[in-house]
């Protein structure tokens, strides 16, 4: 019997397709998310918008709060560890977390190396800004990729940039003859075998989700139409006026992402979205997307 293999890890990512993964900070929010139809929750002490506001070092959450959330819901529970902090990841695996997010939302623990994710039985999701970064993370064992976007801003512009970048590079790659793949791999600084596989499939070899700045049903559907296979919503739900209603609307928008009739219907009267931030007002060194490589 095989357990914790790359195939079982990617298998769970496949099951989460066409769904919404919501950030929650306590059992009550987790219940709201599950009732709204979330496919999974991301358990963390503070949503990205609050982490951004609070400053200081952001670390893995207290296992006690994660356990409370695991007790509350029957859907998969994810949690974040710092980039390169493989001991936080060991602790999360011991907690039987269903997916570990090696996340730029937390303060990196290693500025050179990401975690060797092949060494774990639990699956990992990692962020990326472009195809090279996505394939490096898959090379390290990530079973799911998401855009980084700019977390905690409620501003979709960076997630759009990153998804267009990844999809555009895949389209370019798919048109290349075999003898140009190595040079392209060199340009991307990505493992050759994964470059070849991506060219062959015409898509990433693992599910490709969107994250970082989703605040409305329209944002979620936009990411799906651009090629995302599911959507993470961080601060966008519990920073809004009516989280339960907005959460339900975003779930429906992801299912019917290509149906403007449904998108209109679910967008009506949701109350105020989270306030949001202009990217140019955040100094580059304070932007989370530049953490990791």
């Amino acid at each position: 019997m095989e357990k914790g293999t790359f195939e079982t890890k990617v298998g769970l990512a496949e099951m989460l397709k066409g769904g919404v993964i919501m950030d929650v900070t306590n059992a009550d929010q987790a219940k709201i998310a599950e009732d709204a139809g979330a496919v999974a929750v991301m358990a963390l002490e503070r949503i990205p918008a609050d982490i951004r506001q609070a400053g200081g070092v952001a670390r893995m959450s207290d296992p006690a709060m994660i356990q409370e959330i695991q007790k509350e819901v029957s859907i998969p529970v994810m949690a974040k560890c710092r980039i390169g902090h493989f001991v936080e990841a060991q602790i999360l695996q011991e907690l039987k977390i269903d997916f570990i997010d090696e996340s730029e939302v937390l303060t990196p623990a290693d500025e050179v190396n990401h975690i060797d994710k092949h060494a774990f039985r639990a699956p990992f999701v990692c962020g990326c800004r472009n195809l090279g970064e996505a394939l490096r993370r898959i090379g390290e064992g990530a079973a799911m990729i998401r855009t980084k976007g700019e977390p905690g801003t409620g501003n979709i512009v960076e997630a759009v940039r990153h998804m267009r970048q990844v999809m555009g590079e895949i389209r370019r790659l798919s048109a290349l003859p075999a003898d140009e793949l190595m040079a392209f791999a060199k340009e991307l600084a990505a493992p050759y075998e994964l470059v070849r596989k991506t060219a062959e499939l015409g898509k990433l070899p693992v599910p490709n989700f969107a994250a970082g700045g989703v605040a409305t049903p329209a944002d979620a559907a936009l990411m799906m139409q651009l090629g995302a296979e599911s959507v993470f919503v961080g601060s966008g739900i519990f920073r809004s006026q009516d989280p339960a209603r907005r959460a339900k609307a975003i779930v429906q928008a992801v299912t019917h992402y290509n149906d403007p009739r449904v998108l209109l219907e679910v967008s009506i009267g949701l109350g105020e979205a989270m306030a949001g931030l202009e990217i140019k007002d955040i100094p580059q060194e304070a932007q989370m997307q530049y953490r990791g490589w």
Binding site: G4, E14, D98, A122
Partner: peptide, 29 residues
Amino acid sequence: YGRQVDSFITEVAAPCLGEPPAFRAIFIR
């Protein structure tokens, strides 16, 4: 069978499917 870390793959006997006699079954949560 438990949470994701307990997801597994195993060969099961599947006489109803003819030859070969085994099927590689993937169990996810």
